[in-house]
Amino acid sequence: MNSGITSIKLVLLGEAAVGKSSIVLRFVSNDFTENKEPTIGAAFLTQRVNIGEQTVKFEIWDTAGQERFASLAPMYYRNAQAALVVYDITKPQSFIKARHWVKELHEQASKGIIIALVGNKVDIVSSGGERKVAREEAEKLAEEEGLLFFETSAKTGENVNEVFLGIGEKIPLGRPDEQSGLQNGGVRITDDQRIDLASTGSGAVAASGCNC
């Protein structure tokens, strides 16, 4: 089954406190914490998922959002095959920042990088809070720039797995040789816990995120 495993190196970018770490925590541990410490530098996490026949291992760099740390970002997106550009749908400023990141990625990252635009914290709107970034506006950006687009809630888990599944489906799988050159430390199989994104058939998402 070795040939069935592919690694995807993925980076998260976005303004501070939009919920990057929370999205990763939801994806990797199906968990959420109300007050998460700001990320300093970057944090590394991994998660394996099954997409159809394929086992995909996400190697995730969750970067720090504050402007002062931005100069570190290239180190993490340089070899990435995929990027999540995250903003907070209640913070217009974070959407402006997201635009910048998309631009920078197109200019600086590797050519074939898959980018997903992620509007986080939809739960706030669901519970009566005010949306400040229109869905249409983000969709428009996604279309213009050729991005995947999702609105998520790390808090409830809504749509979080879909983001990663969407990325996984876009990456040319089954050609690990092509990617291995990009990997740090190469691909290794361990018996760590994995979630099965495609247990009910290709494209469907197992309800591993709670929808409370």
Binding site: G41, A42, F44
Partner: peptide
């Protein structure tokens, strides 16, 4: 292993 010091030590310093 391609581990770079900045990947873990940045936070140690910051």
């Amino acid at each position: 292993e391609h581990v770079e010091f900045i990947q873990f030590a940045f936070r140690w310093m910051n």
